[in-house]
Each structure stands twice: as C-alpha cells, then as structure tokens.
C-alpha cells in the first residue's frame, strides 16, 4: 500500500493540531490581557481567508489574531496574532511568529471596531523588521502606501512562535511588554505637543 494517502492525512491532521494549539495560545493571551481591562473587538473571530475555488492559497489561514480595545486608551486598538504563512511573498516570513502591537488612530479619535484583520500582519511591513522582541513603529503611509485607512501608525514586535513555550513565556515576553508599551505610548501622547 502506498504511503502517499496516509501521509497527506497525517500532514493535514498535524496542521489541525497546530491550529488547536495556536487557538489555545490566543485564548490564553486573551485571558491575560482581559485582566487589564482590554476587551475583544472582534467577537469570537480569529481568522480570515477565502472559500473561493479561485483562491486555494487562502483556504488555510495565514494568520490567527485577536483585537482588543480598552476605554482608558480610546484611540488605540491592540492585537495579538500568530502569523502562520505569507502567501503573497514567501521570503517575508522564515518561520511562524507571535506578533503583537497597537494601532494608533490618532489623538482625539476612537478606534472602535473600525479595523481590518490584516493590520495584525503589520510587523511584516515594518522597515528592517527583526523578530527578537524589538519594537517597530510605522506610519500608515509607510505600511500601506496605497491605502487611505483611517489610522495614524502601527507599532509592533514579534517573536518566533516556537520560542513561546509556556503560559509564563506568553505573559512575560508578550503580554507584559504589550501592556507596558501601550501604557507608555499613551502617557507620551498626553504630553506630545503635536
């Protein structure tokens, strides 16, 4: 009997298991960030893709993400995402990443539910980005030059998914950093004369 068929099934099931673990990571992240008052901005949604016969590359999710807002910082929308692939440009992603960030809609505005899921991929569009936890920040014109999205800038950081090996890692390397950074950007904005 040929191994081809069973191997295909095995591969598909491994991917399904991976999805389960990514979901658990995002659920865990959500339970952590909610303790600081952030609330989900996208219902139970986590992925977006295509069911079109013409777009098989988009059948499997390339990213899973959760977006959050908090009354304290109305113009910020935070996100936590796992980037699984990049079908538009494969060299842009060397391995799956956990990436986090905040979308700044500009002083005096309210982020609300006005966002596109692909903002969660912004790290891949930051200039000279690296995936070691360093913070990158790009203006809308730099990240999405052909768009007129109503956002001012997106700040991100990323780490290899395989480096987040426990809930403690997730808290220390991702959530704590995100919360600290959003707090400091907000404080900076309050004194920013621009």
């Amino acid at each position: 009997m040929s191994d081809k068929g069973p191997n295909i099934l095995k591969a598909i099931r491994q991917v399904r298991t991976l999805h389960g673990q990514v979901a658990l990571l995002l659920q865990t992240a959500e339970s952590m960030i909610k303790k600081s008052g952030w609330t989900p901005a996208w219902g139970n949604n986590a992925v977006s893709g295509s069911n079109s016969i013409l777009a098989p590359d988009w059948w499997a999710p390339i990213a899973a993400s959760r977006f959050f807002h908090v009354a304290e910082y109305p113009n910020l929308l935070a996100f936590i995402s796992v980037l699984l692939d990049d079908v538009e440009e494969q060299n842009r992603l060397q391995e799956p990443l956990v990436t986090c960030g905040w979308i700044d809609y500009g002083k005096g505005t309210t982020a609300g539910g006005n966002f596109f899921w692909w903002y969660c991929r912004a790290h891949l569009f930051q200039a000279d980005h690296v995936e070691d936890g360093s913070i990158f920040s790009g203006a809308r014109q730099q990240l999405y030059p052909k768009s007129n999205y109503p956002i001012k800038r997106i700040s991100t950081f990323a780490l290899p998914l395989a480096s987040i090996n426990s809930s403690d890692d997730l808290q220390a390397k991702v959530i704590d950093v995100l919360l600290k950074q959003t707090e400091s950007v907000w404080q900076f904005e309050q004194v920013d004369p621009i």
Partner: peptide
C-alpha cells in the same frame, strides 16, 4: 482541556508526492 505549553505537534512527515 489543557493550558498552553508550547507548540508540540510537529513531527517529520514524508513528502506526499501526490
């Protein structure tokens, strides 16, 4: 019903050359 403990699922799979 477990807690997140890292990505553990991937093992080598022979190429499915179908």
């Amino acid at each position: 019903l477990s807690y997140y403990g890292g990505i553990t699922c991937f093992g080598p799979v022979a190429d499915a050359d179908w």
